[in-house]
């Protein structure tokens, strides 16, 4: 099973379904899914480290909080994650060490402003051969 994402419909907004063989493997396609809703993002070579660590008791909420941080970094710093060095994801703990790069404003083509990643129908569940995450973004 290769990690991947697909978009699904929601009346006024958009949803992302993510599949991966491990929970940690969900992070990269979930991030790409979010970016694909925002538009065609192009990074420059100006890079820096991105670190995120959070504990909790619901993995779906950990994922949501991580994605909201990714969205914040995009909106405030105009940066996107381009590679994942280390991800650890258990039911209570999430660690992401990644590389972020500045966006190239001349080359990015935007589609949507994402307001937030919602709790609506938010889920992570075990499926045959891996895990599935679903989240809906407010546009």
């Amino acid at each position: 099973m290769l990690p991947h994402f697909e978009l699904f419909d929601h009346t006024a907004d958009m949803g992302v379904q993510v599949i991966a063989p491990t929970m940690a493997g969900l992070m990269a396609p979930a991030t790409q899914g979010l970016y694909s809703i925002i538009g065609e993002l192009v990074a420059t070579s100006k890079q820096e480290a991105f670190q995120f660590e959070l504990s909790g008791n619901d993995p779906a909420i950990l994922l949501r909080d991580y994605l909201n941080q990714v969205l914040f970094v995009f909106e405030r710093d105009h940066r996107m994650l381009i590679s994942f060095e280390q991800t650890e994801f258990s039911r209570e703990h999430l660690i992401v060490n990644a590389t972020a790069a500045a966006l190239d404003p001349e080359k990015c083509v935007y589609s949507h402003e994402v307001k937030a990643i919602t709790y609506h129908e938010l889920s992570i569940r075990e499926i045959e051969g891996g895990f599935e995450a679903r989240f809906i973004v407010d546009i």
């Binding site: 978009l7 699904f8 419909d9 929601h10 009346t11 006024a12 907004d13 958009m14 546009i139």
Partner: peptide
């Protein structure tokens, strides 16, 4: 009020 999703 919307009657179609964005994808549709």
């Amino acid at each position: 009020g919307r009657r179609m999703s964005r994808g549709a």
